[in-house]
Amino acid sequence: MSHLLWWLPRAVLLAAFAFFIFGPLANLVLWSVAEAWFWPNRLPSQYGFRFWERVFRPEGQAMASLWLSIWIACLTTLLCLAVSVPAAWALAKAKLRWRAAILLVFLLPQAFPNLPVSINIARLFFSFDLNGTVLGVVLVHAAHGLVYSIWIATAAFAAIEDELEMAARNIGASPFRAFCSVTLPLAAPGIAASAIFVFLESLDEFTATYFVGAPEVRTLPLLLFSAAAGGNMQIAAITALILLVPSVLFMLVVERFLRAEVLARVGH
C-alpha cells in the first residue's frame, strides 16, 4: 500500500506529461481516420480510410506535393553537401584567421527572423524570374540548411586525427587521394547526419516557400496550410502525419548518427 502511495504522484505527473506530448498527435491520427466527426460527438462517429485513399491517389494533389517536396529536399541536400564538404574540411583542418567569424555567418540565417528576408528574396527573385521556381526554393532552403551541414561536417572533420591523413601521405598518396580514401570515409557518419538535418529542414520549411515558391511550387507544408485554412481537417491531418513520420524516425535514431565526440565539437 505504501509502495502504491509512493508511486501515485509520480504516475499522475508522468501521465499528465504523456497527455501533453501525445495528445496533439493522437488528435491528428483520429482526424485522419474520421469520416464523420461533428459536435456533440466526443469521438468520430464514423471511421474509415476514405481520405487516405483520396490523398494517396496517384493523380491526387497530395502525391504531387509529396514528390515535389522530396525532390526539392534532395536537391537542397545535394547543393548543401557540394559546397559544405570542401568548406568544412578547410574550416576544420586549415588554420584560418577568420574561422570563428565564418562559422558565425552560417548561423545568421537561423538567428534572425527569416520572414523579412524571405519577402525581400521574393522581390529580388521576381526580377530574375526565379519566383515560383524549384531552383529559387532550393537556393533559399540551402541558405538555411548550410548551418547544419557546415557546422556538423566541420565537427566531423575536426574529430579525425591528423596523423591518419599524414600516414596515407607518407606512403605516397596525393593530398586529394588521402582525403578521399581516409578522411572522407571517417567523416561520413557525421556528414550523413548533417545531410538528414538539411533534408528535414527543407522538407519542413514553410515561411520562405510561402513567399518565394507559392503558388506555383506547392510543397507539402503549403498544401497542409491551405487544407487547414480551407477547413479540410482530414486532408490537413493526413498531410501533417506524412510530414511527421520522417521527423519522428530521425528523432529516434539521431543519437546513433551523431557520436558524442562529434557533438561535443559542434560550433567549436
Binding site: P86, L96, F106, A142
Partner: peptide
C-alpha cells in the same frame, strides 16, 4: 598552409549565404 586554397574551398558556401541571406537582409 597558405590561406588561398582554404579560402577558395569556403567561397561557394559563403556565397550561398551571402546572396540568399545577407543580401536580402541588407535590402530589408
Amino acid at each position: 598552409m597558405s590561406q588561398i586554397l582554404p579560402s577558395l574551398l569556403i567561397a561557394p558556401a559563403l556565397s550561398v549565404v551571402g546572396l540568399f541571406f545577407l543580401l536580402p537582409l541588407g535590402f530589408s
